[in-house]
Design a protein around this nucleic acid. Structure first.
Length: 896
DNA sequence: GCGGACTGCTTACCT
DNA sequence: ACAGGTAAGCAGTCCGCG
């Protein structure tokens, strides 16, 4: 019965429609609708009515000159298209009057030019309203995006030629000319990607859910103590975060291409070799492997799961068409590196085989590959994102490869191949290929579909389509929600160069050479073992500072005379007392919502598990955004780049922690260590902690609380290097070499043994025995090294990421680069980002890729030195010496 | 010509 | 394409030294 209504909402890719090839389009439409006859041949209308559906994507249709919104209807699990019907057009702003603009021929006669409108907007840099002219055009490319002849270039180029007769000294300026048109549309219409909409009589309406609205009322009530303006923001954030997520019907796709030289990856732009295998692994339990029949290939007898469908194709073209059917069927398609390889290869290969462009359901872009029907998520891009890697997945994976990410997150690794694709039997190939799409799919399934939901939540926060949010970095997410709010409040979005000209200067000196301003304070640790250590910290210190101190590009160094007394400690900068900065409000409300609602709800055992998991995902997404919210102001690539804002934030942070340090001393508490936003207190009593918290709240207007208590902590004399054992026996290791992921497992294993032993220590008296055991662990590892006892040479390998392309190392040649160069000579393709594994050898150049090395060339002394330095970081704090531990051994072995 | 002191480069980590 | 601060190891350079 759902089928019938589907016909009404005919799902159609209008983008592919053109005069020459209407028929092929219709057939793909029929495939989607599942109806062979009766489909319209002319341009079908957008659905007149559509039940509640998720806004998952937006783009611009160059043929229709309209914004296209893709809606995912969760009942039918299909994508429906909605085209703008409001007549919204692209535009930008200028300070020139229409009268002046009339004189610019290239503008007036531009084929895309439509008309002018006069508008008044608030200019946040001047803190007053300004009159601007809105230049409305028919096509986004008229404003920008082409190499020349666009409005954003014409105006500054041509105005000086006429300005004399205009008797105007003003500089010609253009604003908001670099915003993607579909984003502009989303902001103006106040649409929220990721949220639920319905279509009624052809119009798009947001859907309200009563249940969710009730929760939002609860949240508002929980924030009765703060200003109305802030509650408004909290409410709108909460709405974006509380609305439920759908089930995502999706399929992971992976392809294998025949390659004559097995070490060389085929070029997806040339697509010279046949696609020999494609696997599909979907949320509706389809496991398919499509294989190309080739001469002389064995059937093979590798075991495959019983529910796998193997499909053989005589012609490659048919295989590709079958894959395209998959791309037209699933609303969400997952790949790992599909932008650069799988989808790109498929598209080019299809054209090469004579398939018409209109029949290829892939939109090939410069850097991305999107789909005509659904949403393509390239998980490589998503997992590559540093913020996602660190804050959402806690640095669990190191190397952004399907193998490493799969191993770390779902415990499934790629199948190792001994031979090239050309020599594999069908079943070997199928097994290999299917594993890849299996991992790809499961990466989005694990932890209650964390990856999909994160993308959804981030799309809501940032007002971006799911495709964009999964591919772009945190600074884009932040920029976009700030742009959105500028538009919503009728604020002119400033040009980066104008912010910089007015507020680009920093006034402090960084400790690190080449940095722009001074950062955080790290307190010198007190070396040794300390029992009962309380760690107090400011939750989200920098976002709190931005909130409390009203920081933002508009408020710092504001134009008002009376604000100049409101100086930021440790800087000559002042901050506005008259007007609230937008960033302060946005980041502040997000911070409060996370700390005071989502973090609590994520831990609330009284909630059903499913809801709790959603809250946990949400607070994680907020963490990612908040953690970056200060840094972006110091990043030149950020559109609202404003170095004094970042500098002020750090300066206030230093001020805050210094004040606390003084207060702690005054209260007679010994501070063992501190870093940026934390202080480690030795054996404090409850009253001291309470007083410190009370004082901070009162004096600094920021909260501080006990984050954790270590049964004991071990400090060396090094900053950012310590070890703490929690009450439950968990061992926190920070910064120590033994934790770093590049060190050989051989050394790491010994370190972990020590860690386990330390976890058992409960009080000072138990320490003595533990010390002996630890000495034994070290000694044992040392002796085994001396005797050259190891199971596998790979246990001795160092693993270092190649940060640059090989040829770019011109200043020095680090060891991993030497190893990489040797690999390259051996025909292995090496690229930036690759993880290089090497062992230290006796002979020049003292390194060798582990793949090429043998046991007897290992330089034992180098490993002993490494073992020593790794352990000394802990041993000296325990009052043990590596040399003594080993010296004893020498004596013992001498005595036999 | 050699070795120690030093600086700079690179990576991995902490907040 | 978020920031600055810290540690470690190695590469490369400078300087003194019969």
């Amino acid at each position: 019965m759902a089928q019938k209504s589907l016909l009404e909402y005919a799902v159609v890719d209008r983008k592919s429609v053109n005069e020459t090839e209407p028929k092929t389009l219709v057939s793909s439409v029929e495939a989607i609708i599942g109806e062979k006859k009766g489909a319209k041949k002319d341009l079908p209308e957008a659905p007149a009515n559509l039940p509640p559906s998720y806004f998952v994507s937006a783009s611009y249709d160059g043929h229709l000159k309209k914004v296209l919104i893709k809606l995912y209807e969760p009942q039918s699990e299909k994508i429906y298209f909605w085209y703008d019907n409001t007549g919204h057009k692209p535009y930008c702003f200028t300070n020139l009057s229409p009268y002046e603009l009339e004189k610019i021929d290239r503008l007036i006669k531009h084929e895309g030019f439509d008309h002018f409108e006069l508008e008044e907007k608030y200019d946040p840099l001047l803190d007053r309203n300004v009159k601007v002219t809105k230049i409305v055009v028919n096509d986004p490319l008229t404003i920008g995006g082409r190499p020349q002849g666009t409005i954003r270039d014409i105006i500054p180029e041509d105005f000086p030629k006429i300005s004399e007769e205009m008797a105007n000294n003003e500089e010609a300026k253009v604003w908001e000319a670099r915003i993607k048109y579909y984003q502009c549309y989303i902001y103006d219409r106040q649409l929220y990607p990721g949220m639920i909409y319905e279509i009624k009589n052809g119009d798009l309406f947001p859907v309200k859910l009563e249940k969710t609205e009730e929760i939002i009322e609860q949240i508002k009530n929980a924030f009765k103590d703060i200003s109305l303006e802030e509650v408004e923001y909290i409410e709108s954030w909460a709405r974006l975060l509380e609305y439920p997520a759908p089930k995502f019907r999706r399929a992971a796709v992976d392809i294998e291409v025949y390659a004559p030289v097995s070490t060389r990856v085929p070029d997806p732009r040339k697509a010279e070799y046949p696609v020999i295998c494609v696997s599909v692994y979907s949320s509706d339990n389809q496991k398919r492997v499509l294989l190309l029949k080739r001469n002389g290939v064995r059937e093979g007898n590798e075991p495959l799961p019983a529910d796998v469908m193997l499909e053989y194709f005589d012609k490659e073209e048919d295989l590709l068409r079958a894959v395209f059917d998959v791309l037209l069927e699933y609303p969400f398609i997952l790949t790992f590196n599909g932008d650069d390889f799988d989808l790109r290869y498929l598209a080019h290969r299809a054209l090469k085989l004579g398939i018409k462009k209109s029949e290829v359901p892939i939109e090939v872009g410069k850097r991305v590959c999107l789909l005509k029907y659904g949403v393509h998520i390239d998980l490589y891009k998503f997992f590559f994102n540093r913020s996602i890697q660190i804050y959402a997945y806690n640095n669990r994976y190191r190397d952004v490869t399907l193998d490493d990410v799969g191993k770390a997150i779902i415990g499934v690794e790629k199948i190792r191949l001994e031979k090239g694709f050309g020599e594999l039997s069908y079943t070997e190939l199928a097994q290999y290929c299917l594993r890849d799409s299996e991992i790809t799919f499961k990466l989005t399934k694990v932890e209650d579909e964390l990856a999909m939901k994160l993308i959804l939540v981030l799309a809501r926060i940032s007002s971006m389509p799911m495709e964009d949010v999964s591919r772009q970095g945190v600074s884009r997410w932040i920029r976009n929600f700030m742009h959105r709010e500028h538009r919503r409040r009728n604020m002119l979005i400033p040009n980066a160069e104008d912010i910089l000209a007015k507020k680009g200067k920093t006034a402090t000196t960084a400790i690190i050479k080449g940095k722009k301003y001074k950062g955080a304070i790290v307190v010198e640790p007190v070396p040794g073992v300390h029992f009962n250590v309380a760690v107090m910290d400011f939750p989200s210190l920098y976002p709190s500072i931005i909130k409390v101190w009203n920081l933002g590009y508009q408020s710092i160094l504001c134009p008002h005379q009376e604000c100049r007394q409101n100086v930021i400690p440790g800087t000559p900068h002042w901050v506005c007392t008259r007007k609230r900065a937008l960033e302060s409000l946005l980041i502040g409300s997000l911070r409060d919502l996370r700390v005071r609602w989502y973090k609590l709800k994520a831990k609330d055992k009284s909630l059903p598990a499913e809801l709790r998991s959603w809250y946990s995902i949400t607070q994680g997404a907020l963490k990612v955004i908040l953690n970056a919210s200060y840094g972006v102001f110091g990043a030149a690539t950020f559109d609202l780049y404003c170095p004094p804002v970042a500098e002020a934030t750090a300066a206030i942070g230093r001020h805050a922690i210094t004040q606390i340090l003084n207060k702690a001393a005054e209260l007679g508490i010994q501070v063992l260590y501190g870093d940026t936003d934390s202080i480690f207190l030795k054996n404090p009593i409850k009253e001291q902690i309470a007083e410190l918290a009370r004082w901070t709240e009162h004096e600094l207007k920021m909260s501080i609380d006990v984050d954790k208590v270590y049964r004991y902590a071990v400090f060396s004399s090094r900053k950012k290097n310590y070890l703490g054992v929690l009450e439950d026996g968990t061992v926190d290791v920070k910064g120590l070499t033994g934790k770093k992921k590049h060190i050989p497992i051989y050394i790491k294993n010994a370190f972990n043994e020590m860690k386990e032993r330390l976890a058992q220590v409960k009080n000072p008296s138990e320490f003595e025995k533990a010390k002996k055991d630890i000495a034994n662990i070290v000694r044992d590892r040392y002796m085994r090294l001396k005797r050259r006892e190891w199971e596998n040479l790979s246990d001795l390998a160092f693993h270092v990421v190649l940060g640059e392309e090989l040829y770019r190392y011109t200043k020095t040649t680090p060891q991993h680069v030497k190893a990489a160069k040797i690999l390259e000579k051996n025909g292995v393709e090496i690229r930036a980002g690759d993880l290089i594994s090497f062992v230290k050898t006796i002979k020049e150049p003292h390194v060798k890729p582990v793949e090429l090395a043998t046991n007897n060339e290992v330089d034992i002394d180098k490993y002993i030195a490494y073992l020593q330095s790794t352990f000394e970081q802990v041993l000296d704090a325990l009052g043990l010496s590596f040399d003594e531990i080993i010296g004893l051994t020498k004596l013992e072995s001498f005595l036999g």
